[in-house]
Design a binder for these strands. Structure first.
Lengths: 132, 132
DNA sequence: GCACCATATGTGCAAGATGTCAATAAGGAC
DNA sequence: GTCCTTATTGACATCTTGCACATATGGTGC
């Protein structure tokens, strides 16, 4: 069983749609944080709205990306020691992060257009075969 | 200069659209080969029609994927020694390859829808900010 | 206090994916 | 023979990701 990234096992031909976008968690977390500054553990559940069903994403992966993004200056964090349980690191999106997210959106629009173009080419091809 | 081969330097915010779809070369080569059985070196140029500008893709990458796909049974190859220059390995799409390409198309449709959904969420968010 | 559990974060490694560079090989021009 | 173009292949480095496990705080039952 390949532990690899793009899950050859459950993906193509499987049924559920595999996540084919590289580093997609980044913009998802950014968008989530923009809506509501919160901590990693909480984001794990919130990711469901982007199709990341529970168990799909490992907590450590989320924490890792959060740290990386803080390192890059796209988010900043503060320890929240109020409330019970261990302290939580609460993240906020920085202005640089906003810009980065906007650039991501741009990229995604572009990627979507390319996909559309590819599918169209495929479809035209199919039609050509049908009549030939 | 951030890590990553997804061109943080030249991609996001840069201008040209970076390729964010994992293993996108696979379906591109398959679609190209379906139209016209040919060899790797030739495919390098043909990839331009999918946005892979010359220099974007290294030849070895194309050859590698071709070999992998042959290994998987999606294409088959034959040496072509006619003509001048070194022999060329000409690839043809197999029935399994056709099926695989169809599955890819399905995946891509799904991926596109997810991108659309993400962008829409972002846009709604933006609108909400504008008025508040 | 201690075992145990839920919450919350972090570390390290293995394996897959991709980029880059160099090696090889055949034929043509000079 | 040397150099250039075409064409394919191999090796290595780096990046990305999944997974197992370690750590820490507070609550509950005893």
């Amino acid at each position: 069983m390949p532990r690899g990234r793009w899950g050859r096992g459950g993906g193509l031909g499987g049924g559920a749609c595999p996540r084919r976008i590289a580093r997609f968690l980044e913009p998802c977390l950014l968008l989530l944080l923009r809506g509501d500054a919160t901590h990693g553990y909480n984001l794990l559940e919130a990711l469901r709205q982007f199709g990341f069903t529970p168990g799909t994403v490992d907590a450590s992966v989320v924490y890792r990306i959060l740290r990386e993004m803080e390192n890059a200056g796209w988010v900043s964090s503060q320890w929240d020691t109020a409330g019970s349980g261990p302290p939580r690191r609460v993240y906020t999106v920085t202005p640089d992060g906003e810009e980065y997210l906007a650039a991501w959106i741009n990229d995604l629009r572009c990627t979507r257009d390319e996909i559309d173009q590819f599918i169209e080419t495929y479809t035209r091809h199919e039609a050509g075969r049908g009549s030939g």
